[in-house]
């Protein structure tokens, strides 16, 4: 490369970097600082009223019963939702990859569709499907002489209902990642296995799944991080109810920040979430390393 005007590259990256700095990096610092203060809506007009409170917000947040509840709910979402998304998207990808006819390409589109649609529209539609009197789901159950299910009114069932919606939305993207990984497996492996008379099941468990290890690892990390931040579904569908049984940590932060305007308190909550995400991700990397070493 020729020696150019050294300012040129900086001119190209400046707008994007300035915006990223202002709206992604700098906010981290701000969040950390305000999490040690009692900043709220009132103090926005007069900065001098902001008090430094040390670790009080962090201590407070762990005593907050709603926060503890939201922590439990978030774990519930992650422990049930993440494996479900991975299993469903992997199963769909394997089936689509197994098919040889052109029609199977159409299935990619159908299963991908839910993930590009607007979350509010999706929540509105599912609220209608879940409606106890007029909803399609209960109608179908009654039609089959089964009792109605309190989809969004029972504390445990409402969590399950939100998971169902989120799994439905989550299959598409992960399926595409799995399909890409499947297409990367050399055909010769299967040809050799078939010559040796290996059954389809043997080929799946001895060739396909071991070779998909990295894709599965990648998908489980990204899915896990996504589900730890579970937010829009409960916000639009249940507003965290009934009795905070669907409130996630992310929704707790949003509510304290923008509805109660306790910015400092909410920032402390968000750092707890951030640290939890980092720890869980690191743990997963550890586990993965051990697995590879065998």
């Amino acid at each position: 490369m020729k020696a150019l005007n050294t300012k040129t590259p900086y001119f190209f990256i400046a707008p994007a970097l300035l915006l990223l700095g202002l709206f992604s990096l700098f906010p981290i610092v701000v969040a950390l600082v305000i999490s040690f203060t009692d900043i709220s809506l009132e103090s926005l007009g007069d900065w001098s009223t902001i008090r430094f409170v040390g670790l009080e917000n962090y201590l407070e947040v762990f005593k907050d019963p709603i926060f503890m509840k939201s922590l439990f709910n978030t774990l519930f979402y992650v422990i049930i939702g993440v494996p479900l998304v991975i299993i469903c998207s992997l199963a769909v990808a394997l089936l689509i990859n197994f098919g040889k006819a052109r029609i199977f390409r159409a299935f990619r589109v159908i299963f991908y569709m839910p993930s590009i649609t607007n979350v509010v529209a999706v929540a509105v539609v599912w609220s209608y499907l879940y409606n106890p009197q007029l909803g399609l789901f209960n109608y179908v159950l009654n039609f089959l002489h089964l009792p109605s299910v309190p989809w969004l009114t029972d504390p445990t069932m409402s969590k399950v209902s939100l998971i169902a919606l989120a799994v439905w939305r989550g299959i598409g993207v992960n399926m595409i990642i799995f399909l890409a990984a499947l297409q990367g497996i050399p055909k010769t492996y299967y040809e050799a296995a078939q010559l040796d008379g290996a059954t389809n099941w043997k080929q799946l468990t001895k060739i396909t799944l071991p070779l998909l290890r990295y894709a599965i690892f990648f998908v489980s990390i990204t899915t896990m991080i996504g589900w730890l931040q579970f937010f829009e579904e409960p916000l639009v569908m249940t507003k965290g109810g009934p009795l905070d049984s669907t409130t996630s940590v992310a929704l707790f932060i949003y509510r304290n920040g923008f509805q109660l305007s306790n910015f400092g308190y909410a920032a402390a909550g968000s750092f707890v979430l951030f640290i939890a995400i980092i720890i869980i991700t690191l743990l997963q990397f550890r586990l993965q390393k051990k697995e590879v070493d065998y």
């Binding site: 709206f23 992604s24 700098f26 906010p27 981290i28 701000v30 969040a31 305000i34 926005l44 991080i225 730890l228 931040q229 937010f231 940590v249 992310a250 932060i253 949003y254 920040g257 923008f258 910015f263 909410a266 920032a267 968000s270 750092f271 979430l273 951030f274 995400i277």
Partner: peptide
């Protein structure tokens, strides 16, 4: 995570 930057960005 978006939740961490949400409040500072608003401020």
């Amino acid at each position: 995570p978006g939740q961490v930057t949400m409040i500072p960005v608003y401020l």
